[in-house]
Simulated assay, not measured.
Amino acid sequence: MKIITVKDAQAGGKVAFEILSEKLAAGAKVLGLATGSTPIPLYQEIVNSNLDFSDVTSINLDEYVGLPVENEQSYDYFMREHLFNAKPFKQSFLPNGLAEDLQEETKRYDAVIDSHPVDLQILGIGRNGHIGFNEPGTSFDITTHVVDLAQDTIQANSRFFDTIDDVPKQAISMGIASIMNSKTILLLAFGEEKSDAIAQMVNGPITEELPASVLQQHADVIVIADEAAASKL
């Protein structure tokens, strides 16, 4: 696990962009993408660049259950606003949170991932150590699944909604086993509130109670953390 410490999120976005550019130049064709505030500096760097993604496929980590793609809080909407409208990809996959049969949707998404092995997976990390929407206690062996969101995750996401009651209580998430199959993992963490999770991820025991700790077992993980997030390493 390689740790890169940067001054702040904007600097982190620049370093992440350099790594992504190198991977594309080396032949990467499939990117695993994340949502939330953490990857926005990276996406801004991409949008402002001259990189062409017309031959690149993207696969997103997750999507809320029950939100139409037109909803401003859906991850489909997020990706279009922050990246896809400016940088169209060859094809872009997200889970369908409105699927009538959610279990069938998880199988469909597993098939998408299996047929498009991820070259570079972008990750954030939750304050409780979750990656994607894989909450503490999630099996390391699980693939795409329907998640009942933890209360602290709902609380953290409530800042994006009018009230906490509007926050979806479920999501479809790429599983930990699927994430671990990515060739390279690039995890971004910014802010002091992520410092405990980062310290435990890097130096703590490998345990399903801190999902990100499994990354210790991956052969190629790069962590970009600002000084605040790295303060307890």
Rank of each mutant, 00 (worst) to 15 (best):
A156Q: 02
Q151T: 10
Q44P: 01
P88Y: 05
N85L: 07
Q151F: 04
A156T: 09
E104V: 06
K90W: 07
S92V: 02
V118F: 08
N60G: 15
S58F: 13
N48E: 12
E72Q: 13
E45H: 05
Q91K: 15
G36M: 07
T138L: 03
L102I: 08
P39W: 03
L102N: 00
I59T: 03
P136V: 09
I142G: 08
L61G: 10
L31A: 07
F140I: 04
E100P: 12
N96F: 09
F133I: 01
V47F: 00
L149N: 03
T35W: 03
L149Y: 04
E45Y: 02
V56T: 15
V147G: 04
N134T: 09
I113P: 02
T38K: 08
G126D: 03
D110V: 12
T143I: 12
E104A: 15
V69I: 06
F84W: 14
D62V: 06
A150Q: 07
L94P: 02
K29M: 06
E104T: 13
H130D: 04
L120S: 10
T57C: 10
T138I: 10
G126A: 05
V118K: 06
I113R: 02
A25L: 11
S139I: 10
G32T: 10
V147F: 09
E63A: 00
Y75M: 04
L98S: 06
G32V: 11
N96L: 08
T35P: 04
N50C: 00
L83Q: 04
L31H: 12
L24W: 04
E104M: 12
T38D: 11
V147Y: 05
Q155E: 15
Y109E: 11
D114S: 14
E63W: 05
S49P: 14
L120M: 11
N128S: 02
K23A: 15
V147P: 09
A86W: 11
V65T: 05
G27C: 04
